[in-house]
């Protein structure tokens, strides 16, 4: 893949990101941030290759540390976002007396 192609993807995703995120209401900004934490754990995908490629011991070490940190983000981020979003409830239509 060449530089132009990757940069093209970068530009389109940034614009898409702006469009999507500006529609998120302010009451959901905290879950948005923790969800974004989880998504930024995508480095896990890059880290997996480094940790498993068996190129040099040092690269494997670096990859393994990266896998551990990125997994914390992925697992922790999605779980805590789910926990938070589960708390947001709409008012019951019939008001209990």
């Amino acid at each position: 893949m060449d530089i132009v192609f990757l940069t093209f993807i970068l530009m389109l995703s940034i614009f898409l990101g702006f469009e999507l995120i500006s529609k998120v209401p302010s009451i959901l900004h905290t879950p948005l941030m923790s969800g974004a934490n989880a998504i930024s754990g995508i480095t896990l995908v890059g880290a997996l290759v480094s940790a498993g490629a068996d190129e040099s011991a040092f690269a494997t070490l670096l990859g393994t540390i990266a896998v551990a940190f990125a997994t914390i983000n992925v697992v922790g981020g999605y779980l805590v976002t789910d926990r938070m979003l589960g708390m947001f409830k709409k008012k019951e239509i019939e008001h209990k007396k």
Binding site: L20, I21, A36, S40
Partner: peptide, 12 residues
Amino acid sequence: LLIVAGSLVGAS
């Protein structure tokens, strides 16, 4: 994929 996801988070 890292580029797409990373820029979504960056924009957010």
